[in-house]
Write a protein that binds this DNA or RNA. Structure first.
Lengths: 209, 209, 209, 209
DNA sequence: CATGAATGAGCATTCATTCAT
DNA sequence: CATGAATGAATGCTCATTCAT
């Protein structure tokens, strides 16, 4: 639980693929030890058991996302533009760490049950979006919606699941391009919606009548 | 092992909360036996082990979603309207089965690794959306997007994460209302997007210049 | 913890020597399993772990002593005679179960920490003596001493340590003879004391002056 | 590993209660380190592992008893008087070191298996008594018994168990008084026996007839 | 000398699963 | 059909001990 030596930390990443593939419960500590080259007992010396390993790995990912998104969000642009930047940032990190992402999803239940991770999850993914939505309303770059928190959750889902899907697919040769592609798709959806203008008119008409 | 007696089936649902709360690996067969009142060996007699329990529980949920969404999608309306109906249908089922939903997500990794479930997952969640998106383009009620499959994935995320969030929150007194609220929020997002028309102009301007 | 099947119970005795020799902590469950022929998991199914094994074994010994002594004490003789009988009974059982006795002594600390054993210990060893001492005073066959409970404890020690010593020594060919020999020695000590009558006079004289 | 600095030695006594309470196997070196304030590795530097700690602690106790009893036994008095003194000496030391006594008894099995301790045990407890008994016969202050070694063992038990019982009971405010009380009780028993003179007559009569 | 850090070796316990009744 | 009893197989974790500084 102390700040584990940089060397160990880096070795530990060798376990990510394992966990992504089999889930934490399907991964024996011995497997982790073997995959990382760190003696079992040493893992226990530095981390708090198997959960500790997951916690360390995911904390790292979450911190990374958190900080990249944080940067993207802190510019002087309007909220809409910053939302696009945030989406790109999050997807960029996710695509760059496919195994961690898959581990996160595969053990989402457990991650949720690990208090520290639960808040990191919230901080990394949900909060910035919610924040941006509110700011967008203030600066006129995003629409006021009826149920902001539900919409924020939904936007979170749109981004994250896209990222996950990218992470789960066989890692492409050009992660940056993948990220850009998904980022564009998500932004197109989230900002402009899918309805055609005609269907919008029809729909409003329908509701009016 | 296929057709378990109706009584057992209903008892088995008593295990959903357990699994939702602790994950399948955190749930002992003995726990399930105790929670459901079904003797351990009897569970084995009817189902194929622990995974069998999860498979049974989730298959049921997935079938339900699949069929409800199927109905919603099979009307004569335009694709956009049917998309709204599909969202409402999916969210309706999810909100009504919060524990199963959480079990599904919590053990997503395992579900993914169970072949039968993996396809059911795809069929229930992703396919109808993808299908609808294509049909919407055809009937002019939905926009043509640059990367349809990425967008479909993203829409799937928008819907599902919203549903999950509803399922995780303390079950409200009025599930139908919850479903409606979330459904509206998701549709607002997915159909109309978040950008204000002004920001759209600005943005296009910015891109042009 | 349920009344284990007679067959298992008898097999379990095969572990006594092991435990006597190495102490419970020095004895692996696997050793016990091997020595008794009972599969490890079956031991766990019936008993509560390693402590459970010790508890079972010693409970048995203690019950046996308790009941044999109980019989010896329940005759119509005077207390002194019954004390002799009790000593013989206790030593008889101890000599007949040398391994259990040694296990008991070797793990006395643990036995003391196991609540059930602690009381059984008291009941089997200490109580009958204390009782007899009191009755002996009443019927005039035993002396009134200044500190009855301290003396009872001491008598208990005289008997038990003698028995232990007999149990620890290589088991003789004729246990009954051993028991009789030790029994006689203990009774001689406990009933008549070691002082010569001359030394008694001297001593009283010394105190008087 | 022999001569540990006085300061460490004194700190080490802080572990006695721990060991008395839980047994040596139930006491982790880390516990000992924490309880004594001596770093784990330092304990290893000075002593030979866990057994070394026990050995150190008990050797000390045994030496103490040995020497105190030795003094008591080396006077010019008759054997009977010296036996009384020896009893008082042994009980005095035991009562003054209740935790060590309990540790000794609780881990009697192990102590017995530690060669050095085994002989120290014999030397401290058994030998002086045996010696005294023989001398008493020679100087006429103690009776000739049929089985001297069995009786010596029994006397040893009478004394030691009394001392233990005193050590286990909550340590009284006045250890010296306790020791005296128990000492008197033990001597009363061991020297004069419990039989009333009437019962002695009856008994001999009974045997004769 | 003293000790923080690291680890090899060990093992109790758990649990899913089977099967005789 | 249903199930109480039994167990094989697996593994997370502990802890005494070592050693480089």
């Amino acid at each position: 639980m102390r700040k584990l030596p940089a060397k160990l930390a880096s070795q530990l990443y060798g376990a990510a693929e394992l966990i992504a593939e089999r889930g934490l419960d399907g991964t024996k500590i011995d497997d982790i030890a073997e995959a990382t080259g760190i003696p079992k007992a040493t893992i226990y010396y530095h981390l708090d058991g198997k959960n500790g390993v997951l916690e360390f790995l995911l904390s790292d990912l979450l911190d990374l996302i958190s900080s990249e998104v944080g940067v993207a969000v802190s510019t002087a642009e309007d909220a809409r533009t910053r939302l696009e930047a945030a989406v790109a940032a999050q997807l960029g990190v996710m695509v760059e760490h496919p195994f961690l992402c898959r581990a996160l999803v595969g053990d989402l239940g457990r991650a949720t049950r690990l208090p520290e991770l639960a808040v990191a999850l919230h901080t990394a993914f949900y909060e910035p979006i919610q924040q941006l939505l509110a700011e967008g309303v203030a600066d006129g770059s995003l629409r006021q919606v009826a149920d902001p928190s539900a919409v924020a959750m939904s936007v979170f889902g749109a981004i994250t699941v896209a990222g996950l899907s990218a992470a789960v697919d066989a890692p492409s040769a050009d992660p940056a391009a993948d990220a850009a592609r998904f980022s564009a798709a998500v932004c197109e959806l989230v900002l402009d919606g899918l309805a055609t203008s005609r269907s919008r008119d029809d729909h409003e008409l329908g509701e009016r009548s």
